[in-house]
């Protein structure tokens, strides 16, 4: 393989795809076999814009003592039901602020508000994911206080949201027993980047061909460090462990804030 452009051809080999390689000034570089116009080197990272905004979000969340969570799944895996139940029974109702991402309607934000928490709906229109700038605008509107949990419910989609950092402290992927147990292998990007994987709809397990062991093994194959919890957001099974996870993540986020303040105080000294 060419060590410069990685195109799979031998270095310096002329080829049919319209480019080749040559030595120039002793330095190997990628060139076109047949140059026509003026070539302009850009080396522009296309995702860098979102990554920069995500870093700003992360710094803001840290400074304001917020635990930001990015919830991702296929449509219909039960993210909104999970949030509704969490608001109702986790004891964290006052702390939870929800950013809802959907292509259209504010139905999910309305569900969250009926459950007793504040929500801000983002409609992405033709977009298939949330990006860092949308989240920044939503947070400015919601204005959650110190110690809040900012639950960002991404657009239901296992592909695109994995590519866009929102500035979250942790990523939660939800998969349900009505889906294939091999989804972690089929959509590895999503699961590779998740800190917590919730296997939801345990209440339907007896009606479907879904192996919890197989699904868990597939998660571990793409991401050995992910924690897996089996729950039913509808019936309530296993959720105590999820609420404990939330509490711990929140405490850790607040410790990070405290440590940051401490180090800036020491910096002044």
């Amino acid at each position: 393989m060419c060590g410069v452009c990685g195109c799979g051809k031998e270095e310096g080999e002329g080829d049919r795809s319209g480019h080749g390689h040559e030595e120039e000034g002793g330095k190997h570089r990628f060139v076109r076999a047949k140059a026509t116009g003026r070539r302009i080197r850009l080396e522009h990272d296309v995702l860098q814009h979102n990554d920069g905004l995500a870093r700003e979000n992360r710094a803001l969340f840290r400074a304001r003592g917020l635990l930001a969570l990015n919830l991702m799944s296929s449509p219909g895996s039960g993210k909104t039901t999970l949030l509704e139940r969490t608001i109702a029974e986790s004891g964290l109702r006052e702390r939870i602020f929800v950013v809802q991402g959907d292509q259209a309607t504010d139905r999910d934000a309305a569900r969250i508000e009926r459950a007793g928490a504040r929500a801000f709906q983002i409609n992405t229109g033709q977009g298939c994911h949330l990006d860092a700038s949308m989240v920044a605008r939503a947070v400015a509107q919601l204005n959650p206080p110190h110690g809040a949990i900012l639950a960002i419910e991404n657009v239901g989609n296992l592909v695109c949201p994995a590519l866009f950092d929102l500035g979250e402290a942790a990523r939660i992927a939800v998969i349900s027993t009505t889906e294939g147990a091999d989804k972690p292998l089929k959509y590895p990007h999503m699961f590779r980047r998740s800190d917590l994987v919730l296997i939801n709809k345990l209440d339907l397990l007896e009606h479907v061909d879904f192996s919890l062991a197989e699904c868990t093994a597939h998660v571990q194959q793409v991401n050995p460090r992910a924690q897996v919890l089996v729950v039913s957001a509808r019936r309530g099974d296993g959720l105590r462990a999820f609420y404990d996870w939330l509490q711990q993540a929140l405490q850790q986020a607040l410790r990070t804030v405290a440590a940051g303040e401490q180090s800036s105080v020491e910096g002044v000294r």
Partner: peptide, 20 residues
């Protein structure tokens, strides 16, 4: 081992362009 730390492979760059 399957616990892998990615070093590269997630890039999406406009390497260069040609203008007439």
């Amino acid at each position: 081992g399957t616990d892998l730390d990615w070093i590269s492979g997630e890039e999406l760059r406009i390497f260069e362009m040609e203008v007439a």
